Amino acid sequence: MVSVGDSAPDFTAPKTDIDGDIESFTLSEHLDEAPIVLAFFPAAFTGTCTTEMCTFRDQMANFEGVGATVYGISIDTPFTLSAFAETNGLNFGLISDTNRELIDAYDVSMDFADLGVNRLAKRSVFVVDADGEITYAWVSDNPGVEPDYDAVEAAAETLEETTEAA
C-alpha cells in the first residue's frame, strides 16, 4: 500500500471538470497545484460517497484557503462522474478510473462480494506535495466511514506552510 513518504504513483486518466468538460489528466503535470488531495470513493450516486463528495464541496473554501486542490476518484465512467458532479454541484474535478489502474497503483481495491461487485476503490485520501510525495494517507476498510476532513485539511495546510517557508 502507498504510504506517507512514498512517491505518489503517477497516472493519466480522464477527468471531468466542474463545467462538465472531459479531458486527460496526468498527475505529474499538475504537481504545481500541490498540495493535491486525491479522494478515492467507491461509486457515484451512492449514499456515503455522495455525502463525502458533498462534504468536500462544502469545505472547498477551507481547502482553497490552504492552497490545496481536491480531486475525487472512482471507477465510474467520465460521463457518470459528469452527471454526478452536475447533480451535486461539485466544485472540483473528478477522475475516472474505469480500468482500475489507479486503485491498483495506490493499492486501494476492495470487493463487495455479497453484492457481486468487485474492484471498487476503498474510501481513501492521499495528500501529494509538489515533489510528488505522499504526505498524508488514510485508507478505510469500512466503506461506510468518511475521512476526517479536518485532518486532511490540516495535512494540506501543514504542507502549504512548509512550502511557503522554503
Rank of each mutant, 00 (worst) to 15 (best):
Ser3Glu: 15
Val4Trp: 04
Gly5Cys: 00
Asp10Val: 02
Pro14Gly: 09
Asp17Gln: 13
Ile18Trp: 03
Asp19Pro: 02
Asp21Arg: 14
Ser24Pro: 06
Phe25Leu: 01
Leu27Trp: 07
Ser28Gly: 01
Ser28Val: 05
Glu29Val: 05
Leu31Met: 00
Leu31Arg: 07
Asp32Glu: 08
Asp32Val: 10
Pro35Gly: 02
Pro35Asn: 04
Ile36Asp: 06
Val37Phe: 02
Val37Gly: 00
Ala39Asp: 04
Ala39Trp: 08
Phe40Ala: 02
Phe41Arg: 08
Pro42Asn: 09
Ala43Gly: 15
Ala44Tyr: 02
Thr48Ser: 10
Cys49Val: 00
Met53Phe: 02
Thr55Pro: 03
Thr55Lys: 06
Arg57Glu: 06
Arg57Val: 04
Gln59Arg: 13
Met60Trp: 00
Met60Pro: 01
Ala61Ser: 07
Ala61Asp: 05
Glu64Ser: 07
Glu64Met: 11
Glu64Leu: 08
Gly65Glu: 01
Gly65Phe: 00
Val66Asn: 12
Gly67Leu: 01
Gly67Val: 04
Ala68Ile: 02
Ala68Glu: 02
Val70Arg: 03
Val70Ile: 04
Tyr71Lys: 03
Tyr71Ala: 08
Ser74Glu: 08
Ile75Thr: 14
Asp76Phe: 07
Pro78Met: 13
Ala83Gly: 14
Phe84Asn: 06
Phe84Cys: 10
Ala85Thr: 10
Thr87Asn: 14
Gly93Gln: 08
Ile95Gly: 01
Thr98Asp: 13
Asn99His: 12
Ile103Met: 13
Ile103Tyr: 05
Tyr106Pro: 06
Tyr106Val: 10
Asp107Met: 09
Asp107Lys: 11
Ser109His: 06
Met110Leu: 12
Phe112Lys: 10
Ala113Thr: 00
Asp114Ala: 05
Asp114Ile: 00
Asp114Ser: 01
Leu115Arg: 06
Gly116Asp: 00
Arg119Met: 08
Arg123Val: 05
Val127Gly: 01
Gly132Asn: 05
Gly132Arg: 01
Glu133Arg: 13
Ile134Phe: 11
Trp138Asp: 13
Asp141Ile: 11
Pro143Met: 05
Gly144Leu: 09
Val145Met: 09
Val145Phe: 09
Glu146Asn: 12
Glu146Thr: 11
Pro147Ser: 06
Pro147Ile: 08
Tyr149Gln: 01
Asp150Arg: 14
Ala151Gln: 10
Glu153Thr: 15
Thr158Gly: 14
Glu161Asp: 15
Thr163Val: 13
Glu164Ala: 15
Ala165Ile: 15
